[in-house]
Design a protein around this nucleic acid. Structure first.
Length: 508
RNA sequence: GCUCCGUUCGUCUAUCGGUUAGGACCUCAGGUUUUCAUCCUGGAAAGAGGGGUUCGAUUCCCCUACGGAGUACCA
């Protein structure tokens, strides 16, 4: 019996969760669920200077909206807490010191740490990125170069210090990435990363390894930007003597045009959201629109994200969350970055809107209708949704697509009305109105047969009658079948609008 | 600069040495629909370049080019 699979999503609360982050969370979730495992949310807030109020709640809200709720974690409970690293602060120093005892790390006292100045000097000399590494540390002031008794004295005096990892020289570090297969680095390229900062907080590197171990994480699924620091994490596991999790580094989501990864700027520039939910920056008050508020269904958003970088190897494109869980595997995640395509994203949403039942849509859009002061029962809304859903890409389009069910025609397509109208048709339409008024049930079928018989009797064709009818009723040549619209509108409104339409036609 | 990762239609991608290189978005042309949308049919559209290995490479290896990420007491 192998260990239970446990994955974690570990964002830092520095702002709204980017859609790339959501995708990482989604893949973590899918992988865990696929293997009957647990999905955990851990907040990585070890850099307290970058904390943004509201960001943690945003993460929680996003996961909930997407339907990928953690089994345990921040705000979700569990036995491995606390799940916020700032609340775990006290425990990290012990682990850093364990490394020092084992000879894998060393102290750097803040008071005489000459690295910042040395580094600046090296940059001036043309070294693009000087490293605090196994060579330079010999010439820098730290517990390796200071006399042992002095180090001891300073420690006892309570001097402030940071702890750095002592990266060994010329060692090959290999690890297997589930997406990229074997990756190797030489430690000579690596530097002595800070493990514990002088404020007592761990850096990501220490915290992530310690917490993943303590939380019994079996599979680390994270963004590609972590690939270069993975050898350090591997060395850390080795130094502690801990079992290593598997690693999977996800490719980036790229901007639709040009170069580089997708950023908030691209969304503003090209007119699409990059965040799942609305976000107001607490500092600047700047607003960013979310997918939810833009009228996207969470399942469509999730489906799109899932296929951006992963594919099942079949031609299926529409997946429920359950189906995604069933079909998912990390091995089928692509290696290269995927350019984001908003057109395709819209297509997904359209597919999901079409596939929803009329009742679901009614419930989903009720609020949008009410925002426009359009009140109707869910039953009636369902009928309206049925008529317009194939014409909608976004949820919020429903009210405008069906506004004429709630208020008078705002704007007439006079161009087409003029084209189709001539005075000789007036008697026909007056007669038609009378006949319609005498109809029993005013059902779509009944209206249609009525119009047809009248038309035939008068020797008129669809093309001569329908456009006028349609424009009178809805103002436009576009839209759902007129007879259904008329039926829903009812006899008296139709009669009124027809009269109005004819009057308008005559005046043009 | 250095390290690592990557490279199939405009975009997302399938292909695990032999295919007319398949699908989807977009796009174009038809058809259904009184209109629009939906839907259906069809078209256009791809293996970065150069070397190998092989009877045979999109597929395996190397080089080049290009792209990306990292290079903080940020995550």
């Amino acid at each position: 019996m192998s260990k239970k699979i446990r994955t974690r999503f570990a964002p830092s609360p520095t702002g709204p969760l980017h859609m790339g982050g959501v995708r990482t969370a989604l893949y973590c979730y899918l992988f865990a669920k696929k293997n009957q495992g647990d999905f955990i949310l851990r907040i990585e807030d070890t850099d307290q200077t970058r904390f943004v109020p509201g960001a943690e709640q945003y993460i929680v809200d996003t996961l909930k909206w997407c339907g990928i709720e953690p089994n345990e974690g921040f705000e979700f409970g569990g036995n491995y807490g606390p799940y916020r690293q700032s609340e775990r602060k006290a425990m990290y120093r012990k682990y850093a010191e364990e490394l020092i005892e084992k000879g894998h790390a060393y102290y750097v006292f803040t008071s005489d740490d000459n690295w910042p100045t040395v580094k600046e000097e090296l940059i001036k000399q043309g070294n693009p990125s000087p490293k605090y590494d196994n060579v330079t540390r010999q010439y820098l002031k730290n517990s390796l170069t200071l006399p042992a008794d002095e180090v001891q004295k300073r420690l006892e005096a309570g001097e402030e210090y940071a702890i750095r990892y002592k990266m060994p020289r010329n060692e090959e570090v290999r690890f297997e990435d589930k997406i990229r297969s074997w990756v190797s680095f030489n430690t000579n390229q690596l530097d002595d990363k800070v493990l514990l900062k002088s404020d007592g907080m761990p850096t990501y590197h220490l915290a992530n390894v310690v917490d993943d171990h303590l939380m019994e994480i079996t599979d680390v699924v994270r963004g590609e930007e972590w690939l270069p620091s993975t050898p350090l994490h591997v060395k850390l596991y080795e130094s502690f003597g801990w079992e290593m999790p598997s690693f999977s580094h996800l490719p980036l989501i790229l901007k639709p045009d040009g170069k580089g990864k997708l950023s908030k700027r691209d969304g503003d520039r090209l007119g699409f959201p990059v965040f799942p939910l609305n976000w107001t920056d607490p500092e600047t008050g700047e607003q960013s629109q979310g997918y939810r508020e833009r009228g996207f269904l969470p399942d469509a958003f999730v489906n799109m994200l899932a296929l951006l970088g992963w594919n099942p190897g079949t031609e299926q494109e529409i997946f429920t969350l359950e189906e995604l869980v069933e079909a998912f595997s990390l091995e089928r995640v692509g290696k290269s970055g995927a350019r984001f395509d908003f057109e395709k994203t819209k297509w997904f949403n359209q597919q999901y809107i079409k596939s929803k039942s009329n009742e679901e849509l009614a419930l989903l859009t009720k609020e949008d209708f009410e925002k426009h002061k359009y009140e109707a029962s869910v039953e009636k809304l369902a009928i309206i949704c049925d008529l317009i859903k194939e014409r909608a890409t976004f949820l919020h389009e429903f009210p405008s697509l069906g506004y004429y069910f709630f208020e008078d025609v705002r704007e007439y397509d006079t161009k087409n009305l003029v084209k189709k109208w001539d005075g000789t048709k007036e008697p026909f339409f007056m007669d038609l109105i009378n006949s319609l008024n005498s109809l029993e049930t005013f059902s779509a079928e009944e209206i249609e047969t009525c119009v047809k018989t009248k038309m035939e009797a008068a020797g008129l064709g669809f093309g001569q009658v329908l456009p006028i009818l349609r424009i009178s009723i809805t103002g436009t040549m576009q839209g759902p079948p007129v007879f259904s619209v008329m039926s829903l509108l009812g006899k008296s409104i139709c009669s009124d609008r027809l009269h109005k339409g004819i009057t308008l036609a005559k005046s043009l």
